[in-house]
Design a protein around this nucleic acid. Structure first.
Lengths: 184, 184
DNA sequence: ACAATTCGCTACCAACAGTTGCGATACTGA
DNA sequence: TCAGTATCGCAACTGTTGGTAGCGAATTGT
């Protein structure tokens, strides 16, 4: 018999996950990944550092959760693969252009190199959930979907990482054209 | 009258720049950017931490110098732009696939967000020197050359950052095809 | 009332980037 | 040979950070 979804005893968690994640990206935006200390993030969220560590096991996991929250679910698409690709690239460009997102990516990537737990978290929460939706929207096999993600996300992140600026509309159009050449 | 290139007085610097930079990438490869402490790097290079800080102003600058040393000068190319592009993509894929390079990139990108000095160094030592050579080899204007760099380098780095693996030959060929669509 | 759990707070630890000071060393120039 | 200068390796230090431990108070179900 299935366990009834009865509420566990004890004081329930306050509803502040979203506020903490928003404060995380805000602080990373202002101070960079290294400058955004967990003390400062908790102060910006109006809570305590210990509360944050009760919910996320490390700073990298916290920032990863902030990224997941900033991206949200893949937008629904219903066209042919070419149309879908253009819409998805614009969606990604918008999200990566939001304050703090690129800096957060750089930080978790750097941390993940020496942190296997964080690496697993990245793949499970950021790569895997989007991969399957992309395969369907673009009608491509897995390996091709992953390459397209590398191309689009990598290009957008590198631009922000090196120049600190977002892409011009003309560059986004070129990026769409380059990605289209991978649709097969 | 020109100042004679007379050697400055005092004990000359030991010839250990290259050994330190190699030890830097080696250590970043093994332990990640955060795990590669300057203490460990200096130990791996067989020198003292203070000697490193006498030559490079920060850990970020040290790792950036390691990257510059790992890439070396742009290889000479002498074909039409299409041939040159393919050769340059393969050159970049080889360099970014070398141990420690991708992890070093992620680390300096993350640090650069909150360190204007490091941001300037990145552009002056890693972006600017290659941009002009690329414009000539590919016969494209500046903005297009920068976009191609974002596309190629960004894609290669994102693949290593997320999966930790290098690209298959088939993927490199697809990347070349995608970049070619930007040649105009 | 009682058990269970979270909250905010203070205090703490180990590790790291970067600095300072020192004696020893290697070179130049007179 | 002797001063002057700059480097070297070493040890000790500072300030900060990620993360932990322990507490009394608050909030729920039974």
């Amino acid at each position: 018999m299935p366990a009834r979804p009865r509420r566990a005893p004890g004081r329930p968690r306050s509803d502040l996950d979203e506020e903490v994640l928003a404060a995380t990206l805000r602080t990373v935006h202002e101070l960079g990944y290294a400058g955004a200390t967990v003390d400062k993030i908790s102060a910006a969220a109006g809570t305590a550092k210990t509360t944050i560590y009760r919910r996320w096991p490390s700073k990298g996991a916290l920032v990863t959760a902030g990224l997941v929250s900033a991206f949200g679910p893949l937008p629904p698409v219903a066209g042919d693969p070419r149309q879908n690709l253009a819409a998805l690239v614009r969606w990604g460009a918008d999200r990566i252009g939001r304050p703090g997102v690129a800096a957060a990516f750089a930080g978790v990537f750097a941390d993940a190199v020496s942190d296997p737990d964080l690496r697993r978290l990245l793949r499970a929460q950021l790569q895997e959930p989007y991969r399957s939706g992309l395969e369907q929207a673009l009608a491509v096999p897995t390996a091709r979907a992953l390459l397209i993600v590398d191309l689009v996300v990598g290009t957008l992140l590198h631009r922000r990482g090196i120049t600190g600026e977002t892409m011009t509309e003309a560059d986004v159009q070129q990026l769409i054209a380059a990605a289209e050449s991978l649709l097969g």
